Amino acid sequence: MPVPPTSHADDLELLRTAAVAAGIIATGFFRRDVKSWNKENASPVSEADILVDRYLAATLLQARPTYGWLSEETTDNPSRLNCERVFVVDPIDGTRGFLRGEDSWTVCLAVVENGVAVAGVVYAPMRDELYEAVRGGGARLNGQPIRRRRRPGSPPVIPAAGAVHQQLQDAGLNYTRGPYYPSLAYRLVQVATGTLDAVVSRRGSQDWDIAAATVILDECGIDIADVCCGFPRFNKRDIRHGAVAALGDMSLKPLLHAALITVYGCPADEASAVSQTSTDERI
């Protein structure tokens, strides 16, 4: 399929408009009596997620009918693998927080081209914060270039799971435990602003969790990587990622990557361990 004629900047404008409209729809359900249930993986979903997803699919695919579609709330269609550009969507990232009435949930939209996120929007309607970026064109927050705030002499602020904190403490790192936001995308973009100095996530995040934030962080010069295989690539057959780290301070990279690999491991390590076990059993 040929590359669509629209520019990445055109796609970003479409994502921005759609994200704002989707945020208005979702806000209508916020802090209301919303129907919700658990999916097979025990993660929650609500009627708001579904309605926003349907709106986004109709709006975005009507505007770009040749693009593929990958969304947390839509059954996967393998035809996306044949598309050069794909919409990657999380209609409400941080549904648990949304249902609890916390205000940091986001609408996350990205366009991925040949495996690379080229345009992305992370929109937090209740905080009136719209983060956006286009590959090669910089990143903005509410229309202004994102400038990372500095805190000279202060210990780095890092939110993480308890097991990762234990690894960092055992290694003697002087840092402050950061606030936990239910939306992974929102946590990630806080590294771009300087609110957080690093963000890590366990294995198992999926394309829609990180694609939009990845292009924003990359345009801000923030290192983001799957600690098992490097810079994230998207729209593969398997959309799951290893543990992810976003770093505003590169001196933290060896320690944080090592902690994540120790706690969560990598698929290749497990495959190697299984292969070795099978070999031992045959001896």
Rank of each mutant, 00 (worst) to 15 (best):
V122D: 00
R85F: 01
G97V: 09
E84A: 12
F98N: 02
S79R: 12
G94A: 09
G115S: 10
V88E: 03
G68K: 00
N82T: 13
V88G: 03
L99S: 03
D93N: 10
N77V: 03
G101I: 09
D128S: 14
R100L: 15
T74R: 10
V122P: 00
S79D: 15
S79C: 07
V116I: 14
N77G: 02
G101M: 09
N77M: 03
M126R: 13
C108G: 01
V89A: 07
N77S: 14
D128N: 15
L109H: 08
V111M: 09
D128A: 14
V111I: 13
T75N: 13
N114P: 03
R100M: 13
T66K: 06
L109S: 07
L99Q: 05
R96V: 12
R127Y: 05
N77E: 14
T66N: 13
P125T: 08
V86M: 02
D128C: 10
E113M: 04
S79G: 10
A124I: 08
T66E: 15
A124T: 10
L109I: 09
L109F: 08
A119I: 08
V111K: 04
F98L: 06
P125K: 04
R80M: 14
M126A: 13
R80C: 01
V88S: 02
E73Y: 08
P78M: 06
T74N: 11
L70E: 03
R127S: 11
C83N: 09
A124G: 07
V86A: 05
D103G: 09
A124Q: 12
P78R: 07
E73H: 09
R85A: 07
E84H: 14
G94W: 05
P125H: 05
V86I: 15
A110N: 10
G68Y: 02
V111Q: 08
E113H: 13
E113R: 14
W105D: 01
I92K: 02
V116E: 14
G101C: 09
E73N: 07
C83K: 15
D90T: 03
P91H: 03
P78I: 07
E84Q: 13
E129Q: 15
V118Y: 03
V111A: 11
V111F: 09
G101D: 08
E102C: 01
L109E: 06
V122Y: 01
E73F: 09
G97S: 10
V112S: 06
N82W: 10
R85C: 14
G120F: 03
Y67R: 05
V116W: 07
D93S: 02
R127C: 11
Y67C: 07
D90F: 02
V107F: 01
R127H: 14
Y67H: 15
R85S: 12
T106P: 00
E113D: 13
V111Y: 05
W105L: 04
E129T: 05
S104R: 06
V121P: 07
V86E: 02
N77F: 04
T75I: 13
N114Q: 15
P125W: 02
V88I: 10
G120R: 01
L109K: 06
N114G: 12
Y67G: 05
I92Y: 03
